[in-house]
Amino acid sequence: MAVDKIEVDDARVSHNYASLNGRRYHYLLGLPKNGEFKATIFLIHGWPDISFGWRYQIPLLLELGLRVVCPDLMGFGRTDAPKVPPASIHLYGFKRAADDIAELARQLEAPRIILGGHDWGGMVVYRTAQWHPTLVTHVFSVCTPYMGRSDAYVSTEDLVKGPLPQFGYQLQLAGPTVEAKITTREQIKMFLSGMYGGRGPNKEVAFSPEQGVLFENLEKLGMTPLLSEKELNYYADEYARNGMHGNLNWYRNRKANYDDELELKATTIEVPTLFILATRDSVLTPAMSKGMERSIPKLTRREVAATHWALWQAPGEVNMHVKEWMESTVLCGRSSL
C-alpha cells in the first residue's frame, strides 16, 4: 500500500529560518490542517541526509495532530556550514545541536517537545533528552541504538580496531579524501545516488562500512531506487549549497563530543523511548542495541526488515510502529501535552 509523503515544494510544509545561538538554521514546519496541534515534535536527520529525509513520516504526524519541526543540522542543507578552522569543531557536536534544538523550541513557544531521530539524529535526540531533560517528553530513534557517554576517551581508530570494525568508513570521512574528491554538483548527485542504494551493472556499490566511499565504482552506478529523479535533484542542490565540508565535520568531532560530555551528569534516559531496529543495517547492527534497557528503563523495541534507509525503504512499517507508540504512549487520548 502506498504511503503518503511530502513532495518537493509541498504546501503542507513551509521553509523557515531562525538564528540559533548565533548561527542561521533552516527548518521545515508543518501544522495540522486546522492549525491546532496537540504537541510539537522535532525530527532530526543524519548523514548523508537533510530535513527532507522525514518526508514519509511528516504526513502521519500531522494527521496525529502534531506540529512538526524538521531542522537541517549544522553543515547540512540551508543551515550554516562554518569552516573548521577557524570555527570550532564543537559547532558540530551533540551538545551544540541539543542547545540549538532547545533554542528553536523556545522561539516556537514549545516548552515541551517530542524528539525523533535517525542516524546521527538518533544520537542527537538521546543527548538532547539528557542535556535538556525538562524540555523532552518522549524520544524515538530509527536505526540508532543508545550509546552512553564514556568515562575515558576512545578514539574512532580504537573503535575500529576493537568492537566496531564496521565504523572503518568514519576514518575515511573524517579525513581529507571525500571532501577533496566530491566537489561539483554532479559529483554530489552521483555520490548521493550511490549512498542511497544505486547499483552498478555487476552489483557494484558506492559504500563499504569497513572502507567508506568506493570512488572507483561511482561512475558505474545507476539511479537509487529510493528517490525519484526530482527528489535526487533536490538533494543534490541542497548539498551543493555548501559542499561536503560541513556535513563531514560530524565525523571529526569525536574528541569534542567527549570533552563536552565531561560535564554531562545524566547516564540514563528517563522518558519513554521507542527504538526501531533496522535488521539489515550493516553499520548500526542489531548487536549494538543489546542491553539498551539498562540505560532506558521505559524502552519500547520494534523492528523492520530494512537497511539503514528504513525511513524510505520500509515507510509503512516504520510509520505503523511510530503511530502505535504515539497513540498508546505519547498521546494516550489527551487533547494536548
Rank of each mutant, 00 (worst) to 15 (best):
A11M: 04
V13H: 02
Y25T: 05
L28I: 02
G35Y: 03
E36Q: 14
F37E: 11
I44F: 02
H45Y: 07
G46V: 11
S51M: 12
F52P: 03
W54K: 05
W54C: 09
Q57N: 15
L61G: 12
L62F: 06
L73M: 15
L73D: 02
M74G: 02
T79M: 14
S88M: 00
I89V: 09
K95Y: 00
K95V: 00
R96H: 02
L115W: 10
L115N: 02
G121P: 13
V125N: 03
R127L: 03
R127H: 11
H132W: 10
L135A: 07
V136I: 10
V142P: 06
Y153P: 00
Q166L: 05
F167Y: 15
P176W: 04
G197C: 13
N202W: 01
S208R: 07
G212M: 03
E216V: 10
K220L: 15
E229S: 11
E231Q: 12
Y234M: 09
A240G: 06
H245D: 08
N247Y: 01
A256S: 11
L262P: 00
L264R: 00
T273W: 08
R280S: 03
T285W: 02
M288Y: 02
L299K: 04
R302T: 06
E303K: 09
L311T: 10
G316D: 04
K323E: 15
M326T: 04
S328M: 11
S336R: 13
